[in-house]
Design a protein around this nucleic acid. Structure first.
Length: 464
RNA sequence: GGCCCGUUCGUCUAGCGGUUAGGACUCCGGCCUCUCACGCCGGCAACAGGGGUUCGAGUCCCCUACGGGUCACCA
């Protein structure tokens, strides 16, 4: 069975890079009928994690990714880590180091001045003497000396490090007794039964350290997949300054979660030429072995296009429900289907959708001056007046867009008018601008009574 | 700086020794049309550079350049 995990440190929100690796982990586990777990990496007691963890879970709820089992908080597992620290100490695989922070800093400074790689010199590795007074020791692990640590990365292939290049006897427990990151990650991944670790490739160089822990403790080493980072549109590292790092921001901006997920799954992964993936298809087709080796730049245009696609194809119920979040409630409107269909082809986000809906639902507060100048004349006002009178006669028979279309054709024929001559003035009177969905759709939603009101109001405005 | 990883249109990518290097987004034309969109048709646009290996290289190897990651008693 495959078990994967998402292990964020609680920084306050879930960002899109995190969501992507989480999605990959989720897909891979669920595709194989395995488990997908959440672990909060909050060993640094200075930070508060409860709120952050809740924010993260809220974001996952929005995109409908779910976790198995209980959420694991590292801050609640210190007893477990202590046990393993003791074990390593007892087995002489780790040792107390009494070097003070100042001494360490001095050592590092000296090494750097000699252009050497800063590293612990192992002075307490085989220390047998009397420990210095007044120093709380840290615990260091005995890292192998002349070894090559290599593993097969599921994305990048074989990766190997020489221990002399990257390893020293790194700290596994701080002076205050709390364990450090690379130590707890290895322990938790092992104890939680994680078989496949899918994470950002910024962790690539942590991997050999974690392998040292796995080996010291006799744990089975999982399969690693190091996913390349997401870059901003300029090809630089994605940061808060690029905006919309927080997944929940996308909700506020009117994105559908399936669009975000589709966007993210395709960023760095592909299945031939396919662009659109339903959740079911992702589950069927995803395989981490064809994740790209190189970083991908974030391209908002494509996300917008995907969002438009999902809006176009969403059910009425879905859109009506989503629109409530943006203060548009058309659940009881008798022309709600006409309205949704009129807008779904035009709106790229739910925010735009709501704006467009309001522009039809509510009488215009102002009229676009350019449009008025271009399309409104004495003659067109005359036409509008006649059209209003005409609509009044047909009143009871006009409901659906086709009703308006048929009636309007009669009107145009009677007055020898072209569609263009009528449509633009009507449009301006209805919504205040020269762009909108089909006038028949608008008329149907506005109703005859509303249309007459708007025409009268518009004429009053022009004359007045 | 050491170590590690990467490099196909502007962007996301297909390609797994023989292709007119394909698709998608963006952009530009055209069609449709009551406007705006949608849709449809068409177009612009790429193998970082240099050496090898091979009958043949975007695909394999090496070097260079460029980009990124990482080197904590942070995670």
């Amino acid at each position: 069975m495959i078990t994967t995990r998402f292990a964020p440190s609680p920084t306050g929100y879930l960002h899109i890079g995190g969501l992507r690796t989480a999605l990959y982990s989720y897909l891979w586990a669920r595709k194989n009928s395995g488990r997908f777990l959440l672990r909060i990496e909050d060993t640094d007691l200075k930070r508060n994690s409860q709120e952050a963890a809740e924010a993260i879970e809220k974001a996952f709820k929005w995109v409908k990714l779910s976790f198995d089992d209980e959420v694991v908080y590292q801050s609640k597992r210190f007893d477990i880590y202590k046990k393993y620290i003791k074990q390593l100490l007892d087995e002489k695989k780790a040792y107390y180091c009494y070097m003070s922070k100042e001494e360490l800093d001095d050592l590092r400074a000296m090494q750097q001045s000699k252009k050497q790689r800063p590293r612990y010199d192992g002075r307490y590795r085989d220390f047998k003497g009397v420990p210095p007074e007044g120093i709380e020791p840290v615990v260091r692990i005995k890292a192998p000396h002349d070894a090559v640590i290599s593993f097969i990365d599921g994305i990048k292939g074989e990766i190997s490090f020489k221990s002399e290049d990257i390893l020293d006897d790194f700290i596994i427990a701080r002076a205050d007794g709390t364990p450090t990151y690379n130590f707890v990650v290895a322990i938790d991944d092992a104890l939680m039964g994680i078989t496949d670790v899918i994470r950002g490739d910024d962790h690539l160089s942590n991997t050999p350290k974690q392998i040292v822990i796995y080996e010291a403790l006799g744990f089975k080493i999982p399969k690693f997949y190091h996913v390349p980072m997401i870059l901003n549109p300029n090809g630089k590292k994605l940061s808060k300054r690029d905006g919309a790092m927080d997944v929940m921001e996308y909700k506020k901006m009117g994105y559908l979660p399936e669009a975000l997920l589709n966007f993210l799954v395709r960023l760095g992964w592909s299945h031939g030429d396919q662009e659109i993936f339903s959740f079911k298809e992702m589950l069927e087709l995803f395989d981490p072995s064809n994740i790209n080796k190189s970083a991908s730049a974030y391209n908002g245009e494509k996300l917008l296009w995907l969002n438009a696609h999902y809006i176009k194809n969403a059910s009425y119920e879905r859109i009506i429900e989503e629109l409530k979040e943006f203060n548009v409630d058309i659940k009881d409107h008798d022309k709600k289907e006409v309205l949704v269909d009129a807008i779904r082809e035009r709106a790229k986000t739910l925010v735009e959708f709501a704006d467009m809906a309001n522009s039809i639902l509510k009488p215009p507060k102002q009229y676009d001056q350019k449009a008025v100048k271009k399309f409104i004349s004495e003659e067109s006002l005359e036409i509008l007046l006649k059209y209003a009178a005409f609509l009044r006669i047909y009143d009871k028979k006009l409901h659906l867009p086709v009703d308006f279309e048929e009636a309007t054709k009669i009107f145009m024929k009677k007055h020898d008018l072209k569609m263009k001559q009528l449509a633009q003035p009507v449009r301006i009177a209805m919504v205040g601008s020269s762009t909108s969905p089909s006038v028949y759709d608008v008329l149907s939603i506005v109703t005859v009574e509303g249309a007459i009101d708007r025409i009268e109001k518009f004429i009053k405005y022009i004359k007045g």
